[in-house]
């Protein structure tokens, strides 16, 4: 019975100071943040800040003027001197850059123009070749005809030549005939006798 009573006893509770502090702080921060934002968003705040800013600017200007007049006669290079050198370097870099840019653009232009010319040439070549082919077609036919005729002529000439050769060979045949007709006389022709050695 006693054990049961102990089990039924309510849980012990207490405030967690850490959790409370965390919750309190972050809620307060949100509220405070919103309040501060409202206060900086006013003309009074802007005027106050401007007053401080302008005082600072006045001091800065005075300091800069004094320093630049001091640095004029100083043997050391001032911030302005160093900046001037840097400006020269930057402007030199700009010149190189613009040259590079111009060169790149020119190269692109040349590339584009070359492509354009190539395209146009390709376009132009097709009709020109067709027109030329049409124009030259009768000439080519005539040339072929002439070629045939020349071939025929050559054949005729060859034939003629052959006949002429035959004709040329005709007198030789007569001579042969003559030769074969008097073989005795030729035999009978007295050969000169040598005198006996006396």
């Amino acid at each position: 019975m006693e054990e049961e009573l102990e089990n039924k006893q309510p849980q012990k509770s207490m405030l967690d100071p850490y959790k409370m502090w965390k919750k309190l702080y972050f809620s307060a921060e949100e509220t405070l943040s919103s309040a501060v934002r409202k206060s900086v968003n006013t003309g009074e705040f802007a005027n106050g800040i401007d007053f401080i800013l302008n005082s600072y600017l006045q001091y800065l200007k005075m300091q800069n003027d004094y320093l630049s007049s001091y640095m004029k006669d100083s043997p050391f290079a001032s911030k302005h001197d160093v900046a001037r050198v840097a400006e020269l370097v930057v402007s030199l870099e700009n010149k190189l850059d613009s040259l590079e840019g111009d060169f790149g653009e020119k190269l692109t232009d040349v590339d584009n123009n070359t492509n354009l010319i190539a395209e146009q040439l390709a376009k132009q070549q097709e009709p020109t070749a067709k027109a030329l082919s049409t124009a030259l077609s009768p000439t080519m036919t005539a040339l072929k005809d002439i070629s045939h005729r020349v071939s025929d002529l050559e054949i005729l000439i060859n034939k003629l030549d052959a006949k002429l050769t035959d004709v040329n060979q005709l007198p030789n045949l007569d001579a042969k005939k003559k030769k074969t007709a008097s073989p005795v006389s030729k035999v009978q022709k007295p050969t000169p006798k040598t005198k006996p050695t006396e």
Partner: peptide
């Protein structure tokens, strides 16, 4: 009371233990 900020344990001893743990965690 907001339950987020309350500690509930079975005994006072456990409560003290839990509090010590949170303290250590915060450190």
């Amino acid at each position: 009371m907001d339950d987020d900020i309350m500690l509930h344990k079975d005994s006072a001893f456990q409560l003290g233990e839990s509090l010590a743990k949170t303290s250590e965690h915060w450190m």
